[in-house]
Design a protein around this nucleic acid. Sequence first.
DNA 1: TACTATGTTGATTATTTTAGTCAACAAAAG
DNA 2: CTTTTGTTGACTAAAATAATCAACATAGTA
Lengths: 147, 147
Amino acid sequence: MRLSTRGQYGTRALLDLALHQDEEPVPLKEIAQRQQISLQYLEHLIAPLIATGIVRSTRGARGGVCLARPPHEIRLSEVIRNLEGSISPVECVNNPEACARAELCAARDIWGELKKAIDGVLESTTLQDLMERQKRKEKPQEVMYYI
Amino acid sequence: MRLSTRGQYGTRALLDLALHQDEEPVPLKEIAQRQQISLQYLEHLIAPLIATGIVRSTRGARGGVCLARPPHEIRLSEVIRNLEGSISPVECVNNPEACARAELCAARDIWGELKKAIDGVLESTTLQDLMERQKRKEKPQEVMYYI
DNA sequence: TACTATGTTGATTATTTTAGTCAACAAAAG
DNA sequence: CTTTTGTTGACTAAAATAATCAACATAGTA
């Protein structure tokens, strides 16, 4: 049940972009440096995100990438599906023809529930949520007052 | 986010065993045939389940395997962890030293929630649950009476 | 215009993981 | 003592992963 580096790096790259974008496009090189991902690998991770309309790019000097939509409209489910393919833990959940016993398989039901649980988290989390979490983490520790 | 065949086959094999065991041990060959898993592969999947105390085996003629505990005491989480290793979707969730930025990483928080969601399903499902589901599925369709 | 900084794309590669198989062995029953 | 079962470790083929290499396209800038 592992996420590959595509999903991990891709998510981190998008969060980085969300946090650093302003008027200017952000060069991939900067994201790669901050996130310690090889530029050439990052390029390949960004490509499908551009194709699917999560990221927009401009070439040439002063070029770079930016989010194609506001962060609260970018769900993690969309990102992960785009980078890792289907979220389903086993093939037969999406595609009953994958296994002859699918229709009568109790195990498959559970994998379906597992998928629902995973989807639940990823559907309900947006880049905005990630940004807020990140900012909260970086905010200097506040003094706690107890009643 | 895929489960490998180890987890899939292992779960199916245990469910099969649960449904077919009675006084006699069940030979792996039978499970392999019913579940269409190669005997030699199944042997390797069962080995860790024996080692961890989920399954008991007896060798020799009329030998085979049986569950070491009642099905309601065997959680899917234990099975999957045993067959696939940690349930964590990324290394850093369990092991913060895996990534220098772990402590300040919002993405990691989400992977943690993802793990919790997955754990929730697997911890709350026992072999007994699977058995009941399976029996319900195989029961001839009952006529439904509507009030 | 030429140069440089960016993104785009396809081919290639090394490594790791997965999904097994092969084969020798151990033990229990008949 | 032969057969039937499980046990174990070594080995292997195929696929997926995680990149890298390299040629190209495009936009700004000197």
